[in-house]
Write a protein that binds this DNA or RNA. Structure first.
Lengths: 241, 241
DNA sequence: CGCGCACTTGAGTCATTTCAAAGAGGGTGG
DNA sequence: CCACCCTCTTTGAAATGACTCAAGTGCGCG
């Protein structure tokens, strides 16, 4: 399948063709999932991990009142719950935001990869560390930025990530999130997301509406979000050869 | 050195004696570092990682105004910047909170471990995933909890972690942090940390002072911090045999 | 047509910050 | 040995950012 090969391993730029083939061969199944469906519940035992081929997914933790905090958003090419391989079960839920095409990879095949292809194994490790680096940035975002800064930071992060996998080019791109989603990402209420976005629109920073993001004043967004893209390791991706 | 062997690998309960020996043999140097010293700056190229033997360390990201957000705290037995092995440089600073005894592990020896001992390699991977799980919990804490909840959550997390490495037993334990540290952890100002702690004292939840934490009403703390310890994977730690 | 969902807007409240000042303790140098 | 100066902590008062509650708009879809 063309699109599958196209996306696979996109996130880890340093894979050789043989490694890509090996990873692709580890897929046991590809299927479609509807929007807003939970595909993994926190705590359940897992013997497979999920590679996202098309669509958007999120990882969530719930508070007692049922309010959700998103702890990660995933794009095509992401190994959404690769950490379930070493961890065996997850501390959060995984759900689709949009309709998604996902590939299933059994853990025993990953074990074989770490044994037969140590470099590819380290690239998988690298991929989970990218998630961790993003988690840290989310901690920073929530701990130190105000509503506008959080939104700006998240929009910039998403834009760069989407550019690296080729689903965004210019400063206008499709990001099919509702304001409630933004609230779950940025630790804000829906109401306050609405106010924040309209203020950013008024100030000429960015225009977010109808699932489309238009970044208008990049310099101001970078300033507001105190954004430094180093944590995305965009020009790295190799461990040892 | 007795204490070294005692601590090494404590975090990853499932290491065999041979694996412990192998990890210990990877240490090239042990040294002492004073309190409040930065041992790694964000962005610098790294060819070694650091194992914390005694003392407390933190990982930090700075905002433009120079305010810091702590993104992780480390205890004896933690591989503080193991992720520098695949990543090659870090997106945050690493600094001591107290005087620390640290062991240096060159990355080429870690490469050898992943090649010669895949299971130990996966345990190292597991260890970085524990950090990621804690990062997620910190995202949740900052995104969904109020000041009292954040403090309660952090105190409980620290208590459980310290119990698993044997440096805390009962509900009273030494945690040598200032209120400014708590602020950098919980995304609060020092002033508000002071108010929050005194309110928790008044309510009989916990008594934090002079670097000593006394957890008084565990049930209430768990409720306030919406605390569920599953993310610490305390009863896990094995991948595949 | 009407219902549900996403978004907007307003008014009032509350949590946290900011600014300011002062106390408590520990260590150091005169 | 005392005076002084750190750093850490506490407290007060005012300002502000975000939340809650509430009502209302616009839109797509059955």
């Amino acid at each position: 399948m063309h699109s599958r090969h196209f996306l696979l391993g996109r996130r880890n730029a340093q894979l050789s063709p043989e490694e890509r083939t090996m990873l692709e061969a580890a897929i046991s199944e590809v299927r479609l999932v509807e929007a807003r469906e939970t595909i993994v519940n926190a705590g359940e035992a897992l013997s497979t991990s999920t590679l996202l081929l098309t669509g958007f997914m999120g990882r969530y933790m719930d508070d007692r009142a049922g309010h959700r905090q998103m702890v990660a958003m995933h794009l095509p090419g992401d190994f959404v719950d690769l950490h379930a391989f070493p961890l065996q079960h997850l501390d959060h839920d995984v759900a689709t935001l949009t309709p998604c095409e996902i590939a299933t990879v059994p853990h025993d095949r990953l074990t074989a990869i770490t044994e037969r292809a140590p470099h590819l194994g380290r690239m998988l490790w690298f991929s989970t560390l990218l998630d961790a680096a993003m988690h840290r940035e989310w901690v920073f975002r929530l701990g130190r930025l105000d509503a506008e800064g959080r939104m700006a930071h998240f929009l910039l992060e998403s834009w760069l990530r989407m550019r690296t996998v080729g689903i965004a080019q210019g400063p206008e791109f499709r990001l099919p999130l509702t304001q409630a989603d933004y609230g779950e990402i940025c630790g804000l209420t829906t109401v306050h997301v609405s106010r924040t976005l309209s203020s950013m629109r008024k100030k000429g920073l960015a225009d977010v509406r109808d699932g489309v993001v238009r970044l208008i004043d990049l310099a101001a967004l970078i300033r507001a979000g105190e954004f430094n893209p180093d944590y995305l390791y965009l020009h790295d991706g190799a461990v040892t050869p």
